[in-house]
């Protein structure tokens, strides 16, 4: 079975759960920015949770089906249409050969996930089908979808139409968005007052917000504690001897605009970091549009692990419900 890409949308990429194990060579884990949403889409159509689907940013693609399939769209509220007929988000529906899947305009969120029964079956690169465009890896020739592409699909193993993930089991970032942070890394480089202010102020997602990282604006520049620059770091107070960057780490070049690194992170560099977004909140970032008001919420390891448990309880509830 195959699907024809009639139009790709603004930026639609093939993503799965990523390629761990190569970060030490600068190749990031990649994969769906909102992992929970892709897992749900896959579960809805009867796929393995790690199967490859499509991640569509802001606008959807137009896809023509060459055979029968079950489809689900999750994540951002980007309502699907089948031959022009509106379909529900977060629910599975049947598509017949010859039908065209398109999308209405974006209501909320930033990234929609489209799962098709059987999963997208492009060749794996370093163990994953995820598109890492900077390194031209995965996807189709290492790039986003283009009109005329033909998506191969795997063998469908199940899945039924009319299944749904109820709204109480979906997470959204809130308004203002709340992202929990574990302070650390080079937190000691800024003054106490500056650190407190970072958490008190409301920030705003900047235009530079993509799979590599999200930039935030609108808060007060950070105040550094004086120091003698370490050899090799560079003279700016925000410079460090180039080091590895954790996923979710918050670097603040020049102390002005925080950048949160995401799934296609640069693996290292010379800017200090004040902490890290907890793993449970990484998915939420993938749904932030530019200009979204955002608060950073201070937490500790206990809070991070509790949030992790919460998230896995939700996922288990969804798994149980959809396996019935």
């Amino acid at each position: 079975m195959t699907v024809n890409v009639l139009s790709p949308g603004l930026l639609t990429t093939i993503q799965d759960m990523g390629r761990p194990g190569y970060y030490h060579l600068g190749i990031p884990i990649g994969g769906a920015m909102d992992r929970m949403a892709l897992r749900c889409a896959n579960l809805l159509v009867g796929n393995d949770e790690n199967a490859a689907g499509l991640e569509a940013v802001f606008t959807g693609p137009e896809l023509e089906f060459n055979g029968e399939a079950t489809v689900a769209v999750t994540g951002a509220e980007l309502p699907p249409k089948l031959d022009g007929e509106p379909m529900a988000c977060w629910a599975s529906f049947k598509v017949r050969a010859g039908q065209v899947l398109s999308f209405d305009y974006l209501r909320t969120g930033a990234r929609a996930y489209i799962a098709i029964s059987g999963g997208i079956d492009t060749p794996k690169s370093l163990g994953s089908r995820s598109t890492y465009a900077i390194g031209a890896l995965g996807g189709i020739d290492g790039r986003a979808l283009a009109a005329g592409d033909i998506l191969p699909l795997g063998e469908a193993t199940g899945g039924a139409e009319g299944r749904e993930v109820p709204s109480e089991l979906r997470r959204s970032p809130g308004n203002p968005a709340a992202l929990r942070v574990l302070p650390g890394l080079y937190w000691h480089r800024i003054t106490e007052a500056s650190g407190e202010r970072f958490f008190e102020e409301t920030w705003k997602v900047a235009g530079e917000a993509d799979r590599m990282g999200y930039r935030f604006q609108g808060g007060t520049p950070l105040e550094f504690i004086d120091r003698e620059p370490p050899f090799g770091a560079g003279s700016d107070p925000s410079n460090i001897t180039d080091a590895c960057y954790p996923y979710g780490s918050i670097q603040v070049p020049g102390g002005t605009e925080p950048i949160v690194l995401h799934r296609d992170a640069v693996s290292g560099g010379g800017y200090f970091m004040i902490g890290t977004i907890i793993a449970a909140d990484m998915d939420l970032i993938g749904q932030l549009q530019p200009h979204t008001q955002t608060r950073f919420i201070k937490t500790d390891m206990h809070g991070a692990l509790a949030a992790r448990k919460d998230r896995s309880r939700t996922l288990n509830a969804i798994r149980e419900m959809l396996s019935e």
């Binding site: 650390g184 590895c244 977004i277 793993a279 390891m301 991070a304």
Partner: peptide
């Protein structure tokens, strides 16, 4: 030693670069 969120441990051997 510092935690980078709940999934990383970051270890700065030295602030200065040296062999």
């Amino acid at each position: 030693y510092s935690f980078g969120g709940d999934e990383h441990i970051f270890v700065e051997v030295s602030e200065d670069m040296s062999l």
